[in-house]
């Protein structure tokens, strides 16, 4: 595929709370020759509203899809939640004529119509399926040899499989693992890799998701991971921003740096830690960077 141009869907969380993901993504994609177009007038992807009103979730997502259709571009989402709701809505409205007519009835109020002419992809799909491994491998200038990391694909990148058609295993996701290996780093196996970070319920209950995240951090530590790699802002906030509080709650020390995948790839491509905003992480990757310097 030669045409690698996408409409970048940042969502609500990344632009204001997790610039490091956006900065590193933009750097890496530009170097790989992927063009991104800014999404005009985007609104919430719909995901947080699914619990409130299913029709609203579908209509919010559909409005974003209509914007992409008008631009004639596929959507590139960085967040698992955004990917999930936009992709799900796209698939549902394409397949279900009755539902499409209902949602188009709402969209008529704003002179828009869902036609079903676009696709929704996550950063992981764009890298693995469109840019492809060979091109990424060729862009790696400083292989991260001797570095052991753990992947956390998160849930909505691979589930529910009735909508995610990229062939990844919902019980044991491999796509992100393969992308990690391209950087020269080792991707360790650990217990319950496909398990949720817990973040979606942190607004109603803190104890439960903290325990869920603690368990995952513990499993990664047992597997001797030196860092954790995420591809979703919610997972990242759970493990990075909340890690000190999780440590305090359970009286444990993990000190597990949590990098966005494009940060890891960016390091291997020769970008400096500052260029990739590694300094903005909550858990400072001091040991990791030291190791890479002396590699």
């Amino acid at each position: 595929m030669s045409e690698t141009k996408y409409l970048l869907f940042l969502g609500c969380v990344i632009p204001y709370r997790l610039s490091s993901y956006e900065i590193s993504t933009r750097k890496v994609l530009a170097k790989l020759g992927v063009d991104v177009v800014e999404m005009p007038e985007f609104n919430c992807c719909g995901y947080p509203m699914d619990s409130v009103n299913h029709d609203l979730m579908l209509t919010l997502a559909a409005r974003n899809l209509c914007v992409a259709e008008k631009q004639g571009l596929e959507i590139l989402a960085l967040c698992n939640g955004c990917f999930c709701s936009l992709n799900e809505t796209n698939k549902m409205l394409k397949e279900d004529k009755e539902l499409r007519e209902k949602i188009n009835g709402y969209l008529k109020e704003i002179n828009m119509e869902f036609k079903g002419t676009t696709e929704v992809k996550h950063l992981v799909h764009v890298l693995a399926e469109d840019v492809r491994f060979e091109k990424i491998k060729n862009a790696v200038k400083r292989p991260l040899t001797n570095l052991y990391v753990a992947q956390h694909s998160g849930c909505h990148l691979v589930r529910p499989t009735k909508f995610v058609e990229h062939g990844d295993d919902p019980e044991n996701p491999k796509m992100l693992k393969d992308l990690i290996k391209l950087t020269g780093a080792e991707c360790v196996d650990y217990q319950d890799e496909a398990r949720c970070c817990g973040n979606p319920i942190i607004g109603v209950n803190e104890e439960v998701p903290f325990e869920m995240a603690r368990e995952k951090l513990d499993h990664m530590r047992v597997a001797k991971a030196e860092a954790m790699i995420t591809v979703c802002p919610f997972c990242h906030l759970m493990f990075d921003l909340n890690q000190p509080r999780i440590e305090k709650t359970f009286n444990e020390k993990f000190e597990m740096p949590v990098l966005h995948y494009p940060q890891l790839l960016g390091l291997a491509m020769g970008f400096s830690p500052e260029e990739l905003a590694l300094n903005t992480l909550r858990v400072k990757p001091v040991k990791l960077l030291e190791k890479l310097r002396t590699n």
């Binding site: 919430c44 009103n53 409005r63 709402y106």
Partner: peptide, 26 residues
């Protein structure tokens, strides 16, 4: 965002969204 060299985020189209919120009974 400006300091990071990131493009500004344009506000959502609230006129359109208000109509959607009405239509879906939200």
């Amino acid at each position: 965002r400006e300091e990071y060299g990131l493009p500004p985020i344009k506000p959502a189209n609230m006129d359109a969204l208000r109509k959607i919120l009405q239509a879906t009974s939200f």
